[in-house]
Amino acid sequence: MKNVSKVIAFSLISMIIALVIDLVMFHQMGTNLLSEEVLWRAGLIVVLWIVVTALAALRMRFCGYVTILVMLYYAAADFGGFITVSPKSSAYGLSIEVLSILGIIISVVGIWYGIQQRRQYDVDRINNRGSANGNQRK
């Protein structure tokens, strides 16, 4: 259960960073933040987090894979902000770059917990199979 709370926490932080960077990049390009394109993308980022949270809480078989894919998506959004922020040498640009790097690192940690999530599912499944057959481990 400890890993579930870590998955939820790191995915939440990663989602917030990816959302902020995405909104900043849309604003930098001059796109209205209430436009359909921006709202759809922001909604997708939030819905992906909800899916990760729900699957982690339910401990579904493929929850680790979904966590890994969503964290990769968030890391890609952060990397996109890192390479497209302009001007890079301003305080604004540097803060977005630092936030992007932080988001990438947090996404990598989220990927690690996604791998642990899958491993724990397999361990629990093996232990349950052993106890169902009368082979109790000590």
Rank of each mutant, 00 (worst) to 15 (best):
K2R: 15
K2F: 15
N3W: 12
V4L: 01
V4Y: 08
S5C: 12
S5D: 05
S5G: 02
S5F: 12
K6A: 06
I8V: 05
I8C: 07
A9V: 06
F10K: 12
L12M: 09
L12I: 14
I13C: 13
I16R: 15
I16Q: 11
I17Y: 11
A18F: 08
A18E: 08
V20T: 11
V20R: 09
V20C: 04
V20P: 00
I21R: 05
I21H: 11
I21S: 08
I21P: 01
D22Q: 13
L23C: 03
L23Q: 10
M25K: 04
F26P: 00
T31I: 15
N32G: 06
N32L: 11
L33S: 03
L34E: 04
L34C: 10
S35N: 00
S35M: 01
S35W: 01
E36Q: 07
L39D: 07
L39G: 00
W40P: 11
R41T: 12
A42Y: 02
A42Q: 01
L44E: 15
I45M: 07
V46M: 15
V46R: 01
V47G: 02
V47C: 11
W49T: 01
W49A: 12
I50Y: 14
V51Y: 10
V52S: 06
T53C: 09
A54C: 09
L55N: 12
L55W: 14
L55E: 02
A56E: 02
A57G: 04
L58I: 09
L58D: 02
R59P: 02
M60Y: 08
M60A: 10
F62S: 04
F62K: 14
F62D: 14
C63I: 05
G64V: 01
G64P: 00
V66G: 04
T67K: 02
T67A: 11
T67S: 03
I68M: 03
I68A: 05
L69S: 14
V70Y: 05
V70R: 03
L72P: 03
Y73N: 07
A75F: 08
A76Y: 13
A77C: 13
D78L: 13
F79Y: 15
F79M: 02
F82E: 09
F82K: 06
I83K: 15
I83Y: 08
T84W: 12
V85K: 04
S86L: 01
P87L: 08
K88V: 13
K88M: 07
S89D: 13
S89I: 11
S90C: 06
S90K: 07
Y92A: 10
G93F: 00
L94Q: 14
L94S: 06
L94K: 10
L99A: 07
L99E: 02
S100V: 00
S100P: 04
I104G: 02
V108A: 00
V109T: 13
V109I: 11
G110M: 04
Y113K: 13
I115R: 14
Q117T: 03
Q117L: 10
R119W: 04
R119E: 13
Y121D: 04
D122H: 08
V123S: 07
V123L: 12
D124R: 08
R125F: 07
N127H: 11
N127S: 05
R129Y: 08
G130L: 15
S131F: 14
S131W: 00
A132I: 06
N133P: 13
N133L: 14
G134Y: 08
G134F: 03
G134A: 01
K138P: 09
K138T: 09
